[in-house]
């Protein structure tokens, strides 16, 4: 446990810093009220609005750990949302609608995984296919319009609450915890990291890297399906053009802010989810601050650059050293320790 905490400490500190920063421009940011049976406040909005990116980041973390990338998750959201809205408006009921959406996500993942693992296509190219074609597919399902529905059961996944907490927030929390347990309580995490670091050596060591690769893309599709369900339920309609648009990039950013290397290998789902929350806190903070919208992207980009630079491995030892010097502690850099160990 302490090891896990040490891993996510930079992300926790960053999140706290961003919350502090937003509170400076919008003092009521951390205020939470209880109104009409639900918790209300900007922090609650962050937890709820961050759901799609947090969910995508969970799947994306696994894909990136294998040295892959999944650009198609935004389009998969649109497909899954369209399937759910189509099923519900065709009168199939809630369970079939959810099943259709999740099946669509899993199929998308199977498609990507097969292209990558069986046909050996570069992940960025393989998933680009679905990224571009997927929205067209979703539009075929919605017939090019926003397919609206009025089914309170499905809408519950977007705007419902349980014990005062928004359902989308609960969904991503549950997904993150389940996936984290799944990979860490079994050997999946180790095996995924191994193929991400050295697929050839892992295959020779007997790891079924092909099946594992397909599995991570399926996991990513599964997460994207839930994100799509939430996005569709939220506006009570499937917007094939806009649902999940560019969210794949936010998800990748969340994984990177979470300190996971795009070169694959060691990963932390918790850190990625914190990365998603950091992004959403910035987004919500910008909206609350009331700056003209022309500044939105500039502010976001600036903050992201600052965060990434502060987390950069090239800078970290210097920062650590500077901190130690300022505290007057003996100077034993981590690099020095590494040399001594060799």
């Amino acid at each position: 446990m302490p090891q896990v905490f040490r891993r996510i400490l930079p992300q926790v500190l960053t999140l706290l810093a961003v919350i502090l920063l937003v509170s400076l421009v919008f003092p009521g940011f951390v205020q939470i009220d209880f109104e009409r049976g639900r918790l209300v406040g900007p922090i609650i909005d962050v937890l709820k609005r961050g759901a799609p990116v947090a969910l995508l980041a969970v799947g994306m973390t696994l894909v990136i750990a294998t040295r892959g990338i999944d650009l198609s998750v935004g389009a998969t959201m649109a497909i899954s949302g369209a399937c759910a809205a189509w099923a519900i408006s065709s009168g199939y009921g809630l369970i079939p609608a959810l099943a259709a959406a999740i099946a669509a996500g899993i199929l998308s993942g199977l498609w990507n995984g097969t292209l990558v693992a069986v046909f050996g296509i570069q992940p960025i190219v393989a998933t680009l296919i679905l990224m571009t074609a997927g929205r067209g597919l979703a539009q075929l399902i919605t017939e090019g319009r926003i397919l609206t529905f009025s089914h309170d059961g499905l809408a519950f996944f977007g705007s419902g609450t349980i014990l005062g907490l928004p359902v989308p927030a609960l969904i991503w929390c549950v997904a993150a915890v389940l996936f984290a347990l799944l990979v860490r309580r079994t050997a999946l995490g180790l095996l995924i990291e191994a193929i991400g670091i050295n697929r050839r050596a892992s295959t020779i060591a007997g790891i079924n890297s092909r099946v594992l690769l397909v599995a991570v893309y399926v996991a990513s599709g599964f997460c994207a399906a839930w994100a799509g369900i939430i996005a569709t339920a939220d506006i009570r309609g499937a917007d094939a053009n806009n649902s999940g648009l560019w969210l794949e990039l936010d998800a990748i950013l969340a994984v990177v802010i979470g300190g996971n290397s795009l070169m694959g290998g060691r990963f932390s789902i918790a850190a990625s989810v914190l990365g998603a929350l950091i992004i959403q806190t910035i987004d919500t903070g910008i909206l609350l601050a009331g700056f003209p919208s022309e500044f939105n992207l500039v502010i976001k980009a600036t903050l992201v650059i600052v965060i990434l630079v502060l987390q950069s491995p090239n800078l970290a030892p210097h920062l650590a050293r500077a901190l130690r010097i300022s505290r007057g502690a003996p100077l034993v850099g981590s690099s020095a320790a590494r040399e001594a160990g060799e």
């Binding site: 309580r185 079994t186 050997a187 999946l188 180790l190 095996l191 990291e193 191994a194 670091i197 050295n198 050839r200 050596a201 892992s202 020779i204 060591a205 007997g206 790891i207 079924n208 594992l212 290998g265 060691r266």
Partner: peptide, 28 residues
């Protein structure tokens, strides 16, 4: 390129093939 998984620890590298044979669901 074919033997070690460089970023994994000595322990994990030694256990790797054994773990792969046991399957993902039965962690060592």
């Amino acid at each position: 390129t074919d033997g070690i998984v460089a970023d994994l620890s000595v322990r994990e590298n030694i256990a790797l093939a054994l773990q792969a044979r046991r399957g993902w669901s039965r962690p060592l």
